[in-house]
Amino acid sequence: MTEPIVEFKDIHKSFGDVKVLKGIDLNIKPAEKIAVIGPSGSGKTTIIRMLMTLEVPTSGDIIVDGVNLWKMEKNGKMVKANEKHLREVRGDIGMVFQHFNLFPHMTILENCMTAPIHVKKEDKEEARERSIQMLEKVGLGDKLDNYPNQLSGGQKQRVAMARALVMRPKIMLFDEVTSALDPELVGEVLEVIRDIAKEGEMAMVLVTHEMDFALDVADKVLFLDEGVIAEEGTASEVIEHSKNERLQSFLHRFRS
């Protein structure tokens, strides 16, 4: 049994009076591909946003590589993590957003090189080389000097993936990355994710509505419903052979 790289322990999250997550326990092993499915409002996105340190859990622990993400030790007591602690821990995590969030004032190449240079203090030439390679890999080697607003949605999302990959994360999070795309552009983005998944070194968590894609790529599928993990198993167990009624009615809406 390999040690998990990420552990969620009894995670609760409320926004005001609304309880979004009601006790999530989850292990992510290195190189494991996990798809998270479920109706909107079930808290799928919140799970990965907490892992990316964009949202603070109300209670519970998230352990990344043996280190508590949101808490740190101070004078023998566990206190809320400060910015410095978060920066040390979240370096292994990368994320791709539903709405791309590319930096509009930078070219595609600059979008990719900025973080390696300033965050990882990489040599400028080396960062440039690696960024170009990564952009070629996602099929955008001819757009290096373009600005984000000159690209299609699918191209933007591929840049966003290259930008995250250049940082060499151990865990990549995908937040409904095809939901904001025109249907004909979904394929090109999924293909890139499939390629990344095949290389196998990274753990991946995909929040998605693409069931066929989840079946194809994911080692494990979680069905999230009303703030808890209602069903968990291999892709075919959950998507094809589950007896859970709510899951079936949820899937039915995608099949029709």
Binding site: M52, T53, L54, E83, R87, R90, G91, I93, G94, M95, F97, H99, N101, L102, F103, T114, A115, H118, V119, A160, R163, A164, M167
Partner: peptide, 21 residues
């Protein structure tokens, strides 16, 4: 847009780098 700060955080930039870059 808030998404800009989030993307910069996801790339592990410090709060100073987020503001400056």
């Amino acid at each position: 847009a808030k998404g800009q700060t989030e993307a910069a955080t996801a790339l592990n930039m410090s709060s100073f780098q987020r503001m400056r870059l």
